[in-house]
């Protein structure tokens, strides 16, 4: 059974003359490692933000984690991890890395609830997993771009999501960090949490079967399973065709 089921969805921004996503159908099963590629402005980020309900779907039907996305957007966001593409934290941001990682669990805690022991344990585990223990007490605005990116990944791992979506998660990371984090995501997928990753850098992809989705101009032009070393050539071919 699919954990994400999109049927002929359309997504449009107000004032836009054309929908950003058109007639898009996608099915993702638990444990899949999905790579979403394609040229700039293909609609990749819009697709991720449609899946967690940050952007409204105008037509079609969408089910995520068994929930109707149109009715239960906030509940979907509680269950889906999403590492956003662009963020900037000024040096005076008054939150430590540990606090930011804990914020990943705020949605699932619910209103008026305080973090429990299990929340602190999940935060501790996520920080250790990503390898940022020495940064835990530092304020996030004083960290480098790569360290901030690792913090945001830990923020979403601490959430213990049912689906993990990542938008250009390695843009500020060196090769070793990329390879290490890819290993973490591969393990998550192995434990049944599907990974959906938008990326332009395909080095260090885990040696596993990849569900490759290539987008162009708001449509899916390729949707099939392939090996990690086939990802880049297929995307190049697909982008050259259109």
């Amino acid at each position: 059974m699919s954990i994400i089921e999109l049927n002929e969805i359309y997504t449009a921004y107000e004032g836009g003359d054309k929908p950003v996503i058109r007639d898009l159908s996608l099915s993702v099963k638990p444990g899949e490692y999905v790579v979403i590629g394609g040229p700039n402005s293909a609609g990749k980020t819009t697709l991720l933000e449609s899946i967690n309900g940050l952007i409204r779907i105008t037509h079609g039907s969408a089910t995520v984690c068994g929930l109707d996305l149109r009715r239960s957007g906030n509940e979907v966001r509680r269950r889906v991890g999403y590492v956003i593409q662009n963020f900037y934290f000024d040096p005076f941001t008054p939150f430590t890395v540990e606090e930011v990682v804990m914020m990943g669990r705020y949605g699932r805690m619910g209103l008026l609830k305080r973090p429990s022991r299990s929340d602190f344990e999940a935060v501790d585990k996520a920080i250790r997993l990503v390898g940022i223990e020495e940064l835990a007490e530092k304020t996030i605005g004083t960290l480098s771009g790569g360290q901030q990116q690792k913090t945001m990944i830990a923020h979403n791992i601490a959430k213990e999501p049912e689906v993990m979506m990542l938008d250009e998660p390695f843009s500020n990371l060196d090769f070793n960090a990329r390879e290490y984090l890819q290993g973490i995501f591969k393990n998550m997928a192995g434990n049944g949490t599907p990974i959906l990753m938008v990326s332009h850098a395909f080095d260090g992809l885990p040696e596993t079967r990849i569900h490759l989705v290539v987008m162009n101009r708001g449509r899916i032009t390729y949707d099939n399973v392939c090996d990690a070393d086939e990802v880049e050539p297929i995307i190049r071919d697909e982008c050259a065709v259109v």
Binding site: R79, F95, R108
Partner: peptide
Amino acid sequence: FNMKIAEASG
């Protein structure tokens, strides 16, 4: 901290 990240966290 960040309104968009807060919303994405549910």
